[in-house]
Computed example of a mutant assay.
Amino acid sequence: MVKSIHVIHSSPGRTRLRLPWLRHAGKVAASLADDLLLVEGISEVEVRPFTGSVLCRHDPEEVDVERLLEEVRRITGADTVARPGEELPDGEPLLRSLEQGSGLARAATSFIKELNADLLRATEGHVDLGSLTALGFATAGVMNVAIKGKIESPPWFSLGWWAFRTFATMEELAIRNTPTQVRHDNGDAHPPGTSPPSAAH
């Protein structure tokens, strides 16, 4: 198995790496944070074994990205380093989608952000898409009440949607920290932080 390190994001003092194979290496995952914290200049390490995500906060004057990668390779015995923009190996798109969102969601987000930027540009920064949409729905609701002379009960699917939206908004922290189960090639599901059981020989 190739042990690769992927540099996902790096800014002065904050670096996120992904070690795709880490979810199958429980012992390494368990000790990686402690071993990295022994390096002077590294102040905080967060390891998520199931996704292979390793987030490090470090003093950029003492530990730059290259030094951090050197230490991770020394501790883990990793073989290669993949820089931002390089292709992830086969099997990683799922884990990337779990962390970054699906391709469709990213494409839709990009389109909406561009639309919002165009609207802000056209209104010289006075109106954004979120405010315009909220105002449009509010106006439509007021007009509906004015025309019909009464407030009607919303249809069930609207209630369902708002129930879901309220939950997603109020419980964002719980949702973000609840592990997602992913099925491995053998069809078994394993929660984050665990490795699939070894096949019997």
Rank of each mutant, 00 (worst) to 15 (best):
V2K: 14
S4P: 00
I8E: 07
S11F: 05
R16E: 11
L17Q: 03
L17A: 04
R18F: 02
L19T: 01
P20V: 10
L22I: 12
R23Y: 10
R23V: 12
H24N: 14
V28A: 11
A29L: 01
D34W: 03
D35Y: 06
L36K: 00
L36C: 01
L38A: 13
E40R: 13
G41N: 05
G41I: 01
G41H: 07
I42C: 05
E44W: 00
V45T: 01
E46S: 07
P49Y: 02
F50C: 01
T51E: 03
T51K: 06
L55Y: 00
L55C: 01
L55R: 00
C56M: 09
R57N: 13
P60Y: 05
P60N: 08
P60S: 03
E61C: 09
V65H: 02
E66F: 01
E66Y: 02
R67P: 03
L68T: 02
E70R: 05
V72R: 05
T76D: 01
G77L: 10
G77N: 12
G77D: 12
V81I: 15
A82W: 09
A82T: 09
R83I: 00
E86C: 00
D90Y: 03
D90P: 05
G91W: 09
G91S: 04
S97H: 15
L98D: 03
L98A: 14
L98P: 06
L98H: 12
E99P: 01
G101K: 13
G101D: 12
S102L: 03
S102Q: 06
G103Q: 11
A105E: 10
A105F: 08
A107H: 11
A107P: 07
A108M: 06
A108I: 08
A108W: 02
T109Y: 04
F111Y: 09
I112E: 07
K113D: 11
K113Q: 12
E114A: 08
N116V: 01
L119K: 08
E124C: 11
E124D: 14
V127N: 06
V127P: 07
D128Y: 13
G130P: 04
L132C: 08
T133K: 06
T133Q: 01
A134Y: 12
A134R: 15
G136L: 08
G136A: 09
A140V: 00
N144V: 04
N144Y: 04
N144H: 01
A146Y: 13
I147P: 00
K150C: 02
K150W: 10
E152R: 12
S153Y: 12
S153V: 15
S153L: 15
P154V: 15
P155W: 13
P155R: 15
P155I: 13
F157I: 05
S158V: 15
G160M: 15
W161S: 09
R165C: 05
T166D: 05
T166M: 04
T169M: 04
E172N: 06
E172G: 05
L173T: 05
R176Y: 00
N177R: 11
T178Y: 00
P179I: 09
P179E: 10
T180Q: 03
T180P: 01
Q181L: 12
Q181Y: 10
V182K: 03
D185F: 14
N186D: 15
N186F: 07
G187E: 10
G187A: 11
D188E: 15
D188M: 14
S195M: 08
S198I: 14
A199R: 12
A200Q: 08
